[in-house]
Write a protein that binds this DNA or RNA. Structure first.
Lengths: 362, 362
DNA sequence: GCTACCGTTGCATACGTATGCAACGAAGTA
DNA sequence: TACTTCGTTGCATACGTATGCAACGGTAGC
């Protein structure tokens, strides 16, 4: 044997039709749910199809139906485990709707224009933008093209693009209140990407909470949601003459890095010498080595909402921007000193809800 | 304004042709590299295309060229950061070749048949299988269909499907020698998925190394490459009356979990009370909280080899199974007691190479 | 037995692009 | 000038499927 196998042409609906003694239309209708076809011919076609190993050609179908059943998912980087988790859940939810993911990743955030060109060429039925920003021209172009777009964990200034987020502002405020209730007096903040809405909102709420208690000084360093930059930011913060007693890190991915630097480079005990709180409630935050007090971003509801918006817009053909904002919870773990009150145990997890808002979910 | 925007039909090559005063062929040739077209008409077409906002329809192109420029990437789960890293690198490499990824993830490993059906319908140009097994019938079906398949970090018994792996057997052996040279006397192994080649090979090498020193008893528990199962496995191993002095965990993802259990549930000091070694050299293994001694699996060369094999088979049309096996290095960190000799510093990293094989890269 | 009706079927066409083929024109050669 | 050559262009067709339309056959109602 020569070992080399050359590409064999796939079976077409016409071949199946001939083999089954029916027309090509009948084959097509057999594989089109709801089409007018008698059980008898349908059975004949299915038998012939199975025998020949026929699979409908999704490409040809897309050409005629103008629907590719492909959703473009744009994630500049997957370093933060939050996004792989999102991706997995998206895979589940989209495949349940019989949609598929064309993934764009591994590019630098600034190179999004060629990415956009590519995904437009595939006539995707929808676009999910996570962990990347979208210039407003591109958003406009999508709108003109009539392609539904959902920003995942991001919002834009103007409300023209649909989005799914959590209550980042309230989350940041809650963390601020938590730290203040814990008796901390001086504060630091490790920022995420400066122009990201999550960073703005989380910090906005945090600052507001501190300001309500007369605290306006916050030492800020930027980590850009990257581990290595967060390490550098931590080194600067912890080397200050008056080191902050508590640091809010804009997400858990960076908080882990900050904690590592604090412990292993500065020899600090957490939370005795330093309190750290994060955001996302991502995997490593739950590991006992870290145990980060963090605000959850509930991935499953977020993904569900995202897919719902897309499906709604795809099926209706109308692109009315929708904005879904989901609640989160402050999960109390061991990375920050505890307040005297406001901690509740629910389903084996400790949550923080200050008295005034105890009954209102975040 | 009513806010709702209805889908606008995209611009076609014929419209561009009319607008530019040329034939549709000329438009097609303008966007086909290497086609016969004069600079003058080309410029006219490009101007018209830009003006109308034309983008070639990749779907229609695929139909006629029989090439979708889509590669199916199948990853059952992304829990282990190794795979998101792979995904990112794949994104870089494939987009450099102007290919795109259709990602299948978030399904249980047993549900791979419907996944296979889906990806076949899109007439993908190639398939990358990582973190999932493929039944041999499916592999055969791909072979018949002439679709190149590469197993990433997996091999099958028979050599009929291309694969990219690292020297897992040698890596396991090296870790065994390292632990023995470190003076350990009793050993445990936390296994990965039992039928995976990585698990078989790593353990095979490990057992071989121990056997060469007269050690045949290894306490084995299975973690199935899952964090929670690895935790359970660790609890069993560490509760044994004669707790092993050293544990080889089949990958770093599980090793982190084992280390957490050892420290926080059993109060063990690492490496004083217990040595742990892992595999993959994945992110958390490098974090100072863990510092896992581990054998690297070099993602970039592995991905490069994978894409090379695919491109080769796509362009040649011949599917000759290729098997690429890449070297790894044993990176010495702090999770296991050190041997007296054999540790070298290279580029700021400590490597272990026993005297006999010092000059031979793993 | 005739008509009306409805479910089923095949015919023909359309989707947007690539490409073999022939025609054309310009340039070069004798 | 006549002939060859070669680069460029348009025509026509093909890719594999979905679907409007008309035709067909069977059934029910009178």
């Amino acid at each position: 044997m020569d070992g080399g196998i050359t590409k064999k042409a796939p079976v077409t609906s016409s071949q199946v039709a001939e083999h089954a003694g029916v027309s090509q239309s009948a084959v097509s209708r057999t594989f089109t749910p709801g089409a007018s076809i008698s059980p008898k011919t349908r059975a004949k076609v299915l038998a012939a199809a199975k025998e020949l190993g026929y699979r409908p050609n999704a490409i040809a179908r897309s050409l005629i139906t103008n629907r590719s059943r492909i959703i473009a998912v744009v994630m500049a980087y997957l370093e933060n485990l939050f996004y792989p988790d999102v991706l997995e859940e998206l895979g589940r939810r989209l495949s349940a709707e019989n949609y598929h993911m064309l993934l764009f990743t591994g590019f630098k955030d600034r190179d999004s224009d060629p990415v956009f060109d590519q995904l437009m060429q595939y006539r995707v039925d929808g676009i999910i933008l996570a962990s990347t920003s979208l210039s407003s021209e591109l958003a406009a172009e999508c709108a003109v093209a009539g392609i539904p777009v959902v920003l995942f964990n991001r919002t834009t200034e103007r409300d023209e693009t649909s989005s799914v987020t959590t209550r980042n502002h309230e989350g940041g405020r809650l963390l601020g209140e938590f730290l203040i209730a814990g008796g901390h007096k001086s504060f630091g903040y490790v920022a995420g990407l400066e122009n990201s809405s999550t960073n703005r909102d989380r910090f906005g709420g945090f600052r507001e909470a501190l300001a309500a208690h007369g605290i306006t000084e916050i030492e800020i360093r930027t980590g850009n949601y990257s581990r290595s930059e967060a390490e550098a930011a931590a080194r600067e913060l912890l080397a200050l003459p008056h080191r902050p007693e508590a640091i809010f890190v804009a997400n858990d991915h960076m908080a882990v890095a900050v904690m590592d630097v604090a412990r292993h480079e500065f020899g600090l005990r957490i939370p005795e010498d330093l309190s750290i709180v994060g955001y996302d409630d991502v995997g490593p935050a739950r590991w006992p080595s870290y145990g980060i007090t963090s605000v959850t971003q509930p991935i499953e509801p977020m993904v569900e909402a995202t897919v719902d918006i897309l499906m709604d817009q795809i099926h209706s053909g109308e692109i009315e921007p929708q904005h879904k904002v989901l609640p989160g919870e402050l999960i109390v773990r061991s990375s920050a000193r505890l307040p005297k009150a406001g901690i509740f145990e629910v389903d084996g997890q400790r949550l923080y809800r200050p008295a005034a808002t105890k009954r209102v979910p975040l």
